[in-house]
Design a binder for these strands. Structure first.
Lengths: 213, 213
DNA sequence: TAGATTGTTAATCGATTAACAATC
DNA sequence: TAGATTGTTAATCGATTAACAATC
């Protein structure tokens, strides 16, 4: 793969811009300057300019950027226009919540199958997505040509499930389990690190606050 | 506040070490070298050493680190030993999932009250946590001396709720809504950016994959 | 035109990686 | 002792911020 020319921090900021732009668009605003965005989002204005430039969007000197253009640029850059089929393994609390999350559709990720180990969940639909037994994982993803896997299972089962996913043809994984998955190099893995945020939060609390106890 | 001497990337990595150490501890391992950790986690060994040093933990040359010591150091460093009371606003899919999340207890965050705008949820308990009407937010957090607020509500209501929280005495917020909250400077805000991870995932897909469509 | 804004090139800052001394 | 490991100091790398030219 070609290494991305776009820094990861930039990618992380793009959704921030996206949601901000959606909001002001909803308020009827059609033009926005990078200066204003920077101020509202608490980011340096040069940073905002570089990030927006990375998506290929261009503004007009003295005028600013068209909100609709920026939104379109971000969507295109992140490839949110073309859709992929995904499955989710682990229909527990977090998994069920994700099945009902509206953001994926927008991002072109269509969850068409869920899997769970508990017989009580199998056969039902959660937010419209059918739940299969987890031992049918390989068979179903192969049959439905699913290429994306979302892991919302406990850490101790994640590695095994990842291996079955690879067997079945999954090419990319979005992993919510707090474990470093060991998969072939050509498989994409993106880890959602909820605990990373919790650690930063905890540290801020212990640094600043005396209001614990 | 004093700026943290510990880099944010280090804080983000600490839970990774923590979960790794918990796992090998569960397998009966008592000693671990930074070299081995680095290899298993795909992180540079010097990085691991610096991160562990930041928590105040020390190893023995030629021997390694005691797993139990490392775990204790991380817990202490993140102040996971002392507990704080927190409330959660927005008992929807994500909110309910968080109420059932075992990680908070471990991190010393005890959710004692939840709030929701839907009358159907009010008065019930979700994972043992009572749900109050959201218009009682200020009153309840004041009465229960709650200092931490978790926001799992739609973006368009987050700013208003944040302001009520500040009114009621909340000093720190863990925000899951995709919006930059505007609160007084002395209020701690940590944003969980699920969409940041999704953006990185989407970009990886569009860079590497031809398996969309 | 004047001035606000864009967008680029240079300087700074901070994190990661490399080199190496210290220790059991 | 020899060698593996720790932990620190220096070098590199990359992102952020500053300075400035270009544009309408």
């Amino acid at each position: 793969m070609a290494a991305s020319a776009v820094p990861t921090p930039t990618l992380r900021r793009l959704p921030k811009y996206y949601h901000y732009l959606k909001r002001i668009q909803g308020e009827g605003q059609e033009i926005i300057s990078a200066t204003q965005m920077a101020e509202d989002l608490g980011i340096h204005h040069t940073q905002v300019r570089k990030d927006l430039a990375a998506t290929g969007s261009q503004g007009k000197p003295k005028v600013g950027h068209r909100v609709a253009d920026l939104l379109a640029s971000i969507e295109t850059f992140l490839n949110w226009n073309s859709a992929s089929d995904a499955c989710l393994v682990g229909a527990g609390n977090l998994g069920s919540a994700l099945l009902g999350y509206p953001g994926f559709d927008k991002a072109g990720i269509r969850i068409t199958a869920a899997f769970d180990a508990h017989p009580s969940k199998v056969g039902k639909k959660i937010h419209g997505v059918p739940v299969y037994p987890v031992d049918k994982l390989e068979e179903v993803i192969r049959r439905l040509h699913i290429t994306i896997g979302i892991l919302t299972i406990p850490a101790d089962r994640a590695q095994h499930v990842a291996e079955v996913m690879v067997q079945g043809g999954i090419r990319a994984m979005w992993n919510f389990a707090p474990i470093t998955l060991d998969v072939p190099e050509d498989i994409i893995v993106e880890n959602v690190e909820l605990y990373a945020s919790l650690a930063i939060f905890s540290r801020k609390l212990s640094e600043r606050g005396t209001f614990r106890g």
